[in-house]
Design a binder for these strands. Sequence first.
DNA 1: GGGGTTTATTAATAGCTTTAATAAACCGCT
DNA 2: AGCGGTTTATTAAAGCTATTAATAAACCCC
Lengths: 417, 417
Amino acid sequence: MSPKRTAATAPVLRRITAEAVLQALVSGDELTAGDLMSATGLSRPTVHSVCDELIGRGWVTETGAAHAPASVGERTAIQVAASTGGRPSRRYALNAGAGLVAGIDLGATKISCCLADLRGRIVVEATEPWRDEHVGAPERVMIARRIMKELLAEAGGDPGRVLAAGMAVPAPVTDDGHAVALESYLPGMAALDLRTALRPDFDWPLLVDNDANLAVMAERWRGAARGVDNVIVLLAGWRLGAGICLGGRLIRGAGAAGEMRFLELVEGVGNTDAVGGMCRELGAVAAAEIIAGDRPATPEDSVLVELCAGDPETVTAEMVVEAARRGDQAAVDVVDVVMERTARAAAVVSTLLDPELLVLAGGPADAGDVLLPVFDHHLGRLNSVRPRLAASMLGDHAALMGSVRAALDHAFEHLLD
Amino acid sequence: MSPKRTAATAPVLRRITAEAVLQALVSGDELTAGDLMSATGLSRPTVHSVCDELIGRGWVTETGAAHAPASVGERTAIQVAASTGGRPSRRYALNAGAGLVAGIDLGATKISCCLADLRGRIVVEATEPWRDEHVGAPERVMIARRIMKELLAEAGGDPGRVLAAGMAVPAPVTDDGHAVALESYLPGMAALDLRTALRPDFDWPLLVDNDANLAVMAERWRGAARGVDNVIVLLAGWRLGAGICLGGRLIRGAGAAGEMRFLELVEGVGNTDAVGGMCRELGAVAAAEIIAGDRPATPEDSVLVELCAGDPETVTAEMVVEAARRGDQAAVDVVDVVMERTARAAAVVSTLLDPELLVLAGGPADAGDVLLPVFDHHLGRLNSVRPRLAASMLGDHAALMGSVRAALDHAFEHLLD
DNA sequence: GGGGTTTATTAATAGCTTTAATAAACCGCT
DNA sequence: AGCGGTTTATTAAAGCTATTAATAAACCCC
């Protein structure tokens, strides 16, 4: 009993051309009709017609001619194209302020939220550590809503201006992109229907995905993997997970692709729970090392012991990295052990999937100088044909930026509806 | 200096609708205008107009009304739809005879070639074992050309009727789908430019791909994975390779995705060369077992020894399977060892990529009854959340059918050019 | 042979885009 | 300031396509 099949096929063309124009504009630059003509293959009258329509809908603005508004600190790559004489062209640009998208990163240790404009520039942002590690999932979602309300107030936007929201969670997400499958990471998360997580307050379309999946899209967007279609991000912070992008598309299998539990059956290492990432492992291995060490654990002898003030329980990944940087042999050994293990995982993944680029992310911040060479060494030893290697450029922000990207994608897809 | 940007955008619509109609017709069934209307969402006049055009081009035929030509042995699923009175509808069908596609499987032990019509029905087919194992790649290609010439003569078709050809090779193929990257399997293959492999005789577009990749598409088309978008085919004949299809798309990474060399670094097993598949391993492990066996190797005592007439060198995978089927304990043990190893590889792959379905292919023919339960047992032991399991339905023919499918895809993509 | 019914065909209409022609707007130069 | 020269914007005319509405066919059953 569908309401009379609106098969309308004339406007389809308009839709296609409008999408093409919008797509060209999404990059964020000001473009002239000529630019749009060559970008889309359309004729000049059509370009103007489409742009007028998009302006009417509010998604595009016509910027004043060659003023080059160059707001300080932001190089907008506007080429004013030394005029050779001739009527000045109209300049079109995406109306970045026509809407907002929301990004949420429900991390293992903290929550980050932000609002971004249609160019993906973050307008407001807030990060909070969890009060304690064992906050339940429903409560975490409530905190996300509270923060988002505060951000909206700060930005002076009303909820209706937000076109979509993205959310990163540290666990696999089922195929429909909404519910969580495994329980191992966040207690109570699987029972939650994330599709409606923001619902009482915000009625936005909510895109939920695995943090590693979103991280890889973020690195492709604005990070170390720009323009790379076959890339894997190894998210090795508190847990070990991979975001896999092949052929320019996210790989999620039936939902849980990118999980690294195979390490257990590869070598018998790791708890049956989640496989730990570098942060967890560096601390744990170092603590074990100190406790079992045959050397006296004195601050004079060991930078590591000095840094943790003698208490192995308090050793953090940052301490290990710092100690290794200062030449402490025990710390160097710990780094070597943990990176060998991480490299082994990476070798399996990259042998099987043959990416062009491997991005290491989520480790202790700014530790690339210490970790990357060791990782590279082991990867080279294990894997004859290995991909290019890079450290994340987004670090902590990868998943958050990925959630923004997901929201933007959704928003643009439905902009013309 | 492009020849004046043929931006023409009016016929684009026609192209889209024609493709939609063709797509609906490709299934092979006879369809009425009404069927096509609901399949494509187009209006009746448009459907007729498009069909008339396609008929004019030769790709579609108008079949006589409700004759139900039911050629014996082929159930064409034609529903004559008990007429309720009313003008009889015109019936359209893909003109399967309007062209041919060629399929070639350059296997490890044999070569198979075929010609198929546009519905993918094989018209003629030929298989030859290689004269000896060490035939060079250029010579193999020459043999393929000879066989193809014979097939064409047999089918009475001239080369111009062939719209495209697909070719399966037992090695990774680079991203452009044409050249071979690794040398391990077929000597001299990497040096060859496969794009022009058939060129002196046939000027067809040639799609070259990995056998495992083509096998997975074949199983999705007509095999055990029909309608499954997330499926992995484990091709475990002479070498071990995986064809990975996720989200309905083939995963090839930078080119060599699906290679299983990670098994080496997982357990130190396997030669540094290619990782062997079941056929090779079953024979090798059984031979070693016999040689190192602590029992006297008498035919009375061991079915295996009986089958190989006492010579461990001649043990084949088929013998092992047969012996295991007859209850020979040594053979059962061999099967167990080899399947445990295969299952380990499968567990790694499926944990990482989370497919819905895993298809085991390329083993000794008709050995599923012996191998599958053992495989299943080990997979269940290794992998808590495991995918559905199935044996290949195409067996030996998987790669060949995949090459036909690839050729068909290419042909249909360019049918309207 | 005449309702009733379903489909084919034709005619009229509307939307989109393209090319061609016309009008604007700017530069540099005299 | 005015005038070619040049580039872009805008308007007009023409061509395709697809849709809806209306008309004609072709078949069933009674």
